[in-house]
Design a binder for these strands. Structure first.
Lengths: 126, 126, 126, 126
DNA sequence: GTGGTCTAGACCACC
DNA sequence: GTGGTCTAGACCACG
């Protein structure tokens, strides 16, 4: 279900967050369906429960899930999640573009590079 | 000349690296012109010389500068620097695009977002 | 396990790098087995942790080890390590041969000298 | 006559030494012919006289040149020079071979690599 | 516990 | 003066 890449330089809890963001946004996890419990998921992934806990906290803060005390965490159906991701990606793009411009790359070159990226990703997903 | 953002989560030496990459790539620093000495820059930025040293070492490894023992460091004129940055930015873009696709954003939406970023950057630089 | 030669003109961290390269390449350290922690090795060799840290960083960059944040460093099993060393030695050899030729040593004399070296090393390892 | 490679990581005085060793060993400089004066050579190469002085001292210690007080330095004709270089190269080779063996490279592989080096050098000198 | 970063201050080789 | 290395000791994020 979730694969942790230990060689990834990012902290593990961020990877967990990202995986759930993707699953929620693409509809693999339906709104109001229960998230796996912190302890069971920790067991399944051989991770420290603290790590999962931290990921869930952040997911809640970002609006992807909501928590009912004593019942567990559930997938949120609000638009908040999609909005959050969109903003996040726009910010990433802004940084990229900003870096590119400061490196002397022209707008058109940049657009070409974006097309290359799109192609790269398509190929990788084949 | 260079401003350190202590709130930035990235290490200081990376910020120093990035600033010099930009200055070198955009032509603000001419090829073969001397870089500030490790000690003087450390003093100017109120940083430890080791931190500057580390940044310079990485800049040399990436081909942005070269070092003459006992004389100082100098801006490299090789194409290596531009190549390096271009690859770096392409990788960043790949990640962005990949994230966007996995978040269910379509290609055309993505292209729109890129245009927004380009506009944002233009405005910010006005 | 590792002996530092303080009379060696090379920096200590390079000596540490070389020792581990040898141990990894000759199979004394198995893939995915844990490297000693930065602190413990520093203690054992009476060195500053920073020095070990630097050596490990370089070993990771060269593909000999990989690092899991908060868990430690581990021996890499990739071919990258062997490739890296092979290239390094070929470069060394090129320099030797180049020097020899420029010193007026003929090809056949050189081959004899190589045989002498091989014998020397064999004897020393007896 | 002599070209200094400022991007070479070795100290400049070593480069000067090496160049003179080559010129003396290959006969470009005849025995008992005068070496350029420290000051004139320093001027010619835009180097600090200290650097040249240091190189000459070392060349004398190694038997490549001899110095007559008040007269200057002269190329030595003794076999000492050739012997010195031969020993130097043999030591370099020993190190190479030792490294190779410790990296798990077999004798025959090593011989192949030597042949590659010889070919490389031949090509480079074409 | 781990590795990663940083500071303060020292010594060295080189020019 | 320069860069390169090293020590001592601190703080941080991560698991």
């Amino acid at each position: 279900m979730i694969l942790i890449d230990y060689k990834d330089r990012r902290p593990i809890y961020e990877q967990v967050i990202e995986k759930f963001q993707q699953m929620i946004l693409c509809g693999a996890l339906e709104p109001d369906s229960p998230m796996p419990s912190v302890r069971s998921l920790a067991m399944e992934l051989s991770l420290n429960p603290n790590t999962i806990q931290r990921a869930y906290q952040e997911l809640e803060r970002q609006g992807y899930i909501y928590t009912l005390k004593g019942k567990g965490s559930f997938v949120s159906n609000s638009m908040k999640a999609a909005d959050h991701k969109r903003k996040e990606i726009q910010e990433e793009l802004d940084k990229c573009v900003s870096n590119a411009v400061m490196a002397g790359i022209t707008e058109d070159e940049l657009r070409d590079m974006v097309e290359i990226s799109i192609t790269n990703v398509k190929i990788r997903n084949t």
